[in-house]
């Protein structure tokens, strides 16, 4: 059988000191180009699992492989290169309020050392894609919550990462905005990105044909095809 998984966890446990066992021996596989939901009650470990995938936390035990990189042996100097493959969208946006929308998004390309003209072109393109071409020079504080979230999404996708992790990206949005964000993620997935969408909004995955991973008591169970 050909191994198509782009993310693979084997027996992954995470213990926060002193002895909060957030994840207990998880096994999980996500295939290249797949769109999966990650759900579970508050405190069940969704954010923790995602943090392990972009190396903001290290597992206590177990093996994690992301796009061919073994995270248990990844050196700190390699983390930036993992992060260029794995983009994260946060519930609290994590935008810089002192910078403009354009600057917030262009950060992702600046770290790659792209040329100014190239950055300009791609940022404009992406911001147009999320319907924010009119707000380039605004600062995040001048935007609505939904607009801010779309800036955060634009920042996460402008460098065309193969993997996108969304940690409750709709947690602060009303249902119309939520649907917009979901649609955006579907589009990105259609263009080839692998997506893990963490949410406790049951409405989003109730009628889905996609796999849903559910965390509870530090263990994971999967439903769907």
């Amino acid at each position: 059988m050909i191994d198509l998984s782009i993310i693979r966890l084997k027996g992954v446990s995470k213990k926060y000191p002193p002895d909060n066992l957030a994840l207990r021996g998880l096994d999980m596989d996500v295939r290249k180009g797949e769109f999966v939901f990650l759900t579970g009650a508050s405190g069940s470990g969704k954010s923790t699992l995602l943090k392990l995938l972009y190396c903001a936390e290290r597992p206590t035990s177990g093996q994690i492989i992301v796009d061919g990189l073994d995270l248990s042996t990844l050196s700190p100097s390699q983390i930036p290169f993992l992060r260029r493959k794995v983009s994260v969208i946060f519930q609290d946006f994590k935008l810089l309020s002192s910078k403009t929308v354009f600057e917030n998004v262009s950060i992702s390309l600046e770290v790659l050392g792209l040329k100014r003209t190239q950055i300009e072109k791609r940022v404009r393109q992406v911001l147009e894609g999320v319907g924010l071409s009119g707000k380039l020079g605004h600062t995040p504080l001048e935007l609505s919550g939904g607009e801010q979230q779309r800036v955060a999404i634009a920042r996460a996708v402008v460098n065309r990462p193969p993997i996108i992790l969304a940690d409750e990206p709709t947690g602060n949005l009303d249902s119309d905005r939520t649907d917009e964000v979901l649609l955006l993620m579907e589009e990105l997935n259609a263009r080839g990105a692998t997506i893990i969408f963490a949410t406790h909004d049951e409405r989003l995955y109730k009628n889905t044909h996609r796999r849903v991973f559910r965390l509870s008591d530090g263990r994971i169970e999967v439903t769907g095809p």
């Binding site: 100097s77 930036p80 992060r83 260029r84 994590k94 810089l96 770290v111 460098n159």
Partner: peptide, 16 residues
């Protein structure tokens, strides 16, 4: 601090 955190998250090297 916040700016540095975000830079780290989007894959900036320490030198950058």
């Amino acid at each position: 601090e916040q700016e540095m955190e975000i830079l780290r998250l989007v894959g900036a090297t320490n030198g950058f």
